[in-house]
């Protein structure tokens, strides 16, 4: 059990930025990011013991993160207030990097949740097959959706 906890802590430490990025893109404010982050960690922990390595670890983490964020977005669940998960507030920080990040957020967050997941994976340079495996659709479907998403992003840039 202790070994499992250590392995889990190491895994979270290694992939925390991926998890947090997903949560950030699916949230409206910093409280919601923290709540989502915790929910994702809890779901990862629940599945960690039975994770058999059927897919790569990063694929599994993306999957759990997106599933948690998308399902909570659908439910529009009301969260209790909980402590910070990371000592960072990407919604409030005013430095130049944060402004750039906000620009990215503004673009991605305007997309529907499922498209948000696809575009984030696309920005990670993942292949259509890998994206399809994570979001649970075919590579062909990914390419069709991405075509529409890119069109959408283009319209946003032109506005």
């Amino acid at each position: 059990m202790e070994t499992l906890q250590t392995e889990f802590a190491q895994m979270v430490g290694k992939h925390k930025s991926t998890i947090y990025t997903v949560c950030f893109m699916f949230s409206k404010d910093s409280d919601e990011v923290n709540d989502l982050f915790q929910e994702v960690l809890i779901n990862l922990w629940k599945g960690f013991g039975s994770y058999q390595g059927r897919s790569s670890l990063s694929t599994w983490i993306w999957k759990v993160s997106f599933n948690t964020c998308i399902s909570l977005e659908r439910k529009r669940r009301k969260f209790d207030t909980v402590p910070l998960t990371m000592d960072i507030d990407l919604f409030e920080d005013k430095d130049e990097d944060s402004k750039q990040i906000r620009r990215l957020y503004d673009r991605i967050h305007r997309l529907p949740p499922f498209d948000r997941a696809i575009v984030m994976l696309w920005l990670e340079n993942l292949s259509y097959e890998e994206i399809g495996e994570i979001v649970g659709i075919s590579a062909k479907n990914v390419s069709v959706r991405l075509f529409r998403i890119k069109e959408e992003l283009r319209k946003m840039s032109n506005k």
Partner: peptide, 8 residues
């Protein structure tokens, strides 16, 4: 950043 996860 470090993770501070009280809930977990």
């Amino acid at each position: 950043e470090q993770i501070i996860n009280e809930k977990l």
